[in-house]
């Protein structure tokens, strides 16, 4: 009782707008806000790629192979970031590449989040043999180095962007299952759940309507971090030739194609790498901000 004396009235006021409060804590983290701005710009670029990009991503300018960026010696103002080995405009390819990266992140997160939540809720709610079975399978998946497992899966399914996404989703999914299970186990014995049970709620209603919405905060954070992870792994698979296939302007695949020119034409490697770095960094910053905003322990201090 005494511990609440200070925090109670404050909390009552502060929570009057749940979103307002969330934004208050999120915006205190400047890095997160910066990340959000970068991410929003990236989304806009991806959506309006055909309008922004000066050239088509796969159009080859045979007379301008490996043109350096415009501010280098020999650069041309038509190719702002230069061209690659077959004369395609780097900037346009990067802009279109943002579409692929964001699409990969989104699909992977949706796949792994849904399956992870379903498995995690089942495991955490029913416990017993269901729990043992699901979690041991998750442990086995986690025991593999993630990239290796993704490679094996792609090798089985065949290379290609869709299969790569599927493989990455499978690799990332145990994290969601574990997190959901832990949250469900913590919430399951709370009194409001028992109250709902006494009111007559069945298993499905308890799982989906009563418990799950209260477990979402850590999952949102994990989803953000997995988003960047997915982009990174897709780029890695692309670089290894197992992801998106040329001539798709996917950043990892672009890197792979440019490997041999790394000394002669550093820009063909630098800019896709930079694009991956900036995107992943921005999303990770958002994830950190979300974690801060959702964690009640940090709010109290």
């Amino acid at each position: 009782m005494s511990n609440e004396t200070a925090t109670l009235p404050v909390e009552a006021k502060a929570r009057s707008g749940a979103f307002g409060e969330f934004w208050h804590y999120f915006s205190m983290n400047h890095g997160a806000v910066l990340g959000l701005i970068v991410f929003v710009l990236l989304v806009l670029v991806a959506i309006f790629a055909p309008l922004i990009a000066p050239h088509l991503p796969n159009e080859q300018y045979r007379d301008a192979l490996l043109t350096p960026p415009m501010w280098h010696e020999g650069g041309k103002s038509t190719f702002i970031l230069g061209t690659d080995a077959v004369g395609r405009d780097m900037l346009s390819r990067l802009i279109y590449g943002a579409r692929y990266s964001l699409f990969i992140g989104l699909v992977v997160v949706v796949f792994s989040l849904t399956s992870g939540i379903i498995l995690g809720v089942l495991a955490g709610y029913f416990r017993g043999w269901v729990d043992t079975l699901i979690m041991r399978v998750m442990d086995i998946i986690l025991a593999f180095p993630s990239l290796l497992l993704a490679l094996v899966l792609v090798a089985i399914l065949g290379p290609g962007l869709f299969n790569a996404m599927l493989a990455i989703a499978v690799v990332l999914q145990p994290h969601f299952a574990r997190l959901t299970r832990a949250a469900v186990m913590a919430e399951k014995n709370r009194e409001y759940v028992i109250s709902a049970k006494v009111a007559g709620a069945g298993h499905l209603r308890l799982m989906a309507v009563t418990i799950l919405p209260n477990c979402l905060a850590p999952l949102i954070v994990q989803a953000t971090l997995s988003f960047s992870n997915a982009i990174l792994e897709a780029a890695a698979l692309g670089f290894l030739g197992m992801g998106a296939q040329p001539p798709t302007p996917e950043w990892g695949t672009m890197l792979a194609a440019a490997r041999e020119f790394i000394l002669r034409a550093p820009w063909v490697v630098t800019y896709p790498g930079l694009a991956i770095l900036i995107t992943v960094l921005a999303i990770n910053l958002i994830g950190d901000g979300l974690r801060d905003a959702f964690d009640p322990k940090l709010k109290r201090s």
């Binding site: 709370r190 009194e191 409001y192 759940v193 028992i194 109250s195 709902a196 009563t210 919405p213 209260n214």
Partner: peptide
């Protein structure tokens, strides 16, 4: 229940 803070679903 005893604890009025735990017995209502916060969402």
């Amino acid at each position: 229940f005893q604890n009025p803070y735990g017995s209502l679903n916060p969402r």
